[in-house]
Computed example of a mutant assay.
Amino acid sequence: MNMFIIIMLGLICSICIFILVIQRKQLDQILEVLEAAKNGENRKVFIKDNGIVSKIAFEINGLISIHNQELSEQKRLEQVNKELLTSLSHDVRTPITSLLGYLDAIESGIVSGDERDKYIQIARKKAYDLRRLVDSLFDWFKIDSKELILILNDTDICELTKEIVIDWLPALEQKGITPKIEIPDDEWIVELDISAYKRIVSNLIQNALEHSSCNHINVVLKKNDGIISIVVKDDGIGIAKDKLPHIFERLYKGDMSRSRQSSGLGLSIVKELTKMHGGRIIAKSELAEYTEFNIELPIYKR
């Protein structure tokens, strides 16, 4: 009987030692994977049993996966921000160089009379182009850093939209673009951040004015089933179907013929501000026919 107990104890000890050796190997594997993860390598722990070490390995694999996703996103954002700064440095430098050229010509007296007045008008336009570019940059960084907080107020969207379009009439007339406005005289109350809404509509009108080569712009307000739609449509050159899904991406400029004086931020700002209002934006286009942006916002109900 004593011999049997000794044998059993020896067997149990052997099993325990065997388990400890296996668990030591498993822990060494976990440690190796963690060291690799610290060095940026994407590896996983593979343990077959269903014990506590296996559960720990499963949780570690989950943490490593999250870490790798966050690391990948961080690298992507760093690259995007690098591209943004590179693009904007070029976009800012171009109007500044041009502006200084016109101002230097005026200052040195190279031009005079009507030509001098023309140079002043061009310099003024370049200054406004530069201001719009800087405004877009500040808007985007506020949105991207989550620092932009909307101040929502009950607002008559019909009256506000009319005011925005009226502000754009001189620019449209200068470009020879005929506006067609279909905005009801009714009072439609929506919770809006007035400044952000002005930016949304203005960016869409500016996009059509500068890049579509259109003759007409339609601005339409309509409502249906608790949704108000703001439609901005032009009869310009349109956007190719393979490029349409990308137009709201940051820095996307499409082909170079549509990217003059463009930061590639305007439409991405429109999309983000629309989302912050609880709405969505839909784009449709046909080459050489039209481009249409439809913003849908929920109606505020008293």
Rank of each mutant, 00 (worst) to 15 (best):
I17R: 03
I17N: 03
I17T: 10
I17S: 10
F18Q: 11
F18G: 15
F18S: 15
I19P: 02
I19S: 08
L20V: 07
I22V: 15
I22L: 13
Q23M: 06
R24W: 11
R24Q: 09
K25R: 15
K25P: 00
K25M: 13
Q26M: 05
L27H: 08
L27S: 06
L27D: 00
I30H: 03
I30F: 03
L31V: 05
L31N: 14
L31T: 09
V33K: 02
V33W: 02
L34F: 01
E35K: 15
A37G: 02
A37E: 08
K38H: 07
K38T: 05
N39P: 00
N39F: 04
G40I: 06
G40W: 07
G40N: 09
E41I: 02
E41W: 04
E41C: 02
E41P: 01
N42L: 06
R43Q: 12
K44T: 12
V45T: 10
F46K: 15
F46L: 14
I47M: 05
I47P: 03
K48Y: 06
D49L: 02
N50Q: 09
N50E: 12
N50G: 07
N50M: 05
G51C: 03
G51Y: 05
G51Q: 03
V53W: 04
V53T: 15
V53S: 04
V53A: 08
S54M: 01
S54K: 12
S54F: 06
K55V: 07
I56Q: 04
I56Y: 07
I56F: 10
I56V: 15
A57S: 12
A57C: 06
F58N: 14
F58Y: 13
E59F: 13
E59Q: 13
I60G: 05
I60M: 09
I60W: 02
N61R: 08
G62D: 08
L63V: 10
L63H: 09
L63Q: 10
S65T: 15
S65D: 15
I66R: 11
I66N: 08
H67R: 14
N68A: 02
N68F: 04
N68H: 11
Q69G: 14
Q69E: 11
E70C: 05
S72L: 06
S72K: 12
S72C: 00
S72Y: 06
E73Y: 07
Q74Y: 07
Q74S: 10
K75D: 03
K75N: 08
R76I: 06
R76C: 00
R76D: 05
R76Q: 09
L77Q: 13
L77M: 14
L77S: 07
L77E: 11
L77C: 02
E78P: 01
E78K: 11
E78G: 15
Q79W: 11
Q79L: 15
Q79P: 00
